[in-house]
């Protein structure tokens, strides 16, 4: 069983357990029914779900770790991998595609040297492709965090990225 440690990538993140206690106990009353909301709060804090935090959560609320893992892998909103400070959603749906969304995506991959689903080494950006953001009239569309960048051309991509630290 000790081999488990070797199999997992070692996570160096420092989890603030006092803060975690506050989230689990004060905010959500140590109630396992609130699991998804607790996970959302942890993800907001760390941008992803650090495994040590999940292990701590599991013993704290008395839910098997495998079950928490099941929930975390079910919802695409949760990530078990560290994510960047800024999440780029590039739309590759039909409308954006015919207006050149793929070219914008190529440009992003070229500038950031990452592909779909990956995070830059400096943790500045995570690139995710999506199927539709619901504003096809603005296509091609790029969403960074909560900001919409519509009718964007591949030449403008660098300027947009520079706005985010």
């Amino acid at each position: 069983m000790k081999e488990v440690a070797m199999m997992e990538t070692v996570e160096t993140i420092d989890v603030d357990y006092m803060e975690l206690d506050d989230i689990i106990e004060k905010e959500f009353g140590l109630n396992k029914e609130n699991l998804i909301m607790i996970l959302q709060t942890i993800q907001r804090r760390y941008n992803y779900l650090p495994k040590p935090a999940l292990a701590y959560l599991a013993t704290k609320i008395g839910v098997p770790m495998s079950q928490i893992y099941g929930v975390a892998t079910f919802y695409s909103t949760f990530s078990l991998e560290p994510r960047g400070r800024n999440i780029i959603s590039i739309c590759l749906g039909t409308a954006c595609h015919v207006r050149g969304g793929a070219r914008v995506n190529e440009k992003l991959e070229e500038l950031l040297t990452i592909t779909d689903g990956q995070t830059t080494e400096d943790k500045r950006f995570t690139l995710e492709s999506v199927r539709c953001i619901g504003c096809c009239s603005l296509g091609p569309v790029l969403k960074i965090n909560e900001d919409m960048h519509g009718r964007i051309s591949s030449d403008e991509v660098k300027k947009v990225l520079d706005q985010y630290e």
């Binding site: 839910v63 098997p64 495998s66 079950q67 893992y69 099941g70 892998t73 919802y75 695409s76």
Partner: peptide, 14 residues
């Protein structure tokens, strides 16, 4: 989960 109460497995993914 219910009978053996070990919790080694659960559904993963979707």
């Amino acid at each position: 989960h219910e009978l053996v109460v070990t919790g080694a497995i659960d559904y993963n993914h979707r």
